[in-house]
């Protein structure tokens, strides 16, 4: 059903995106495009002492890609880098209908996006921000 995809929480984030904007002094930034639909996303992080201190993102895209970025950014602030990588793995697993590899790291509000898994062509939309996060975290390692 359509309501599985467009849950209230998702629509809230789409209408009122969190942490949208740009940072003055990010330690890492990643720009990604979804060639399938032309969606764009720029993610900026400040990672210090292995902790994500701050996060901002900008981009254009559908409600799924935008709300996914917004919810991700909310979950991320103050999170340890290791934990953030586990969150990425869990989110990806949820999109592909697989078991969580790290059950101890809870998705919380992000589970509102679980319905996307039933709409195969939209999975890429939900994953765009997470792909950017995974790249950013890996870059910030060094």
């Amino acid at each position: 059903m359509l309501e599985d995809l467009y849950r209230e929480l998702i629509m809230d984030h789409y209408r009122h995106p969190q942490n949208r904007g740009r940072l003055e002094n990010p330690t890492v930034q990643v720009e990604l495009h979804n060639p399938l639909c032309g969606d764009e996303l720029e993610l900026q992080l400040i990672v210090k002492d292995d902790t994500v201190e701050d996060v901002r993102w900008t981009g254009q895209g559908c409600s799924i890609s935008q709300s996914s970025a917004s919810m991700m950014s909310q979950a991320l602030k103050g999170m340890a880098r290791d934990r953030a990588l586990k969150l990425v793995a869990n989110f990806q697993a949820m999109m592909h209908g697989e078991d969580f590899p790290y059950p101890e790291v809870e998705l919380g509000d992000l589970e509102a996006l679980s319905g996307v898994a039933k709409f195969p062509v939209r999975i890429k939309c939900a994953l765009l921000a997470w792909e950017a996060l995974s790249k950013a975290l890996n870059q910030s390692e060094s």
């Binding site: 359509l2 467009y6 895209g61 559908c62 409600s63 799924i64 709409f119 939209r122 939309c125």
Partner: peptide, 9 residues
């Protein structure tokens, strides 16, 4: 309304 969302609905 993003065109993807339109097409989906």
């Amino acid at each position: 309304v993003h065109p993807h969302d339109l097409a989906q609905v």
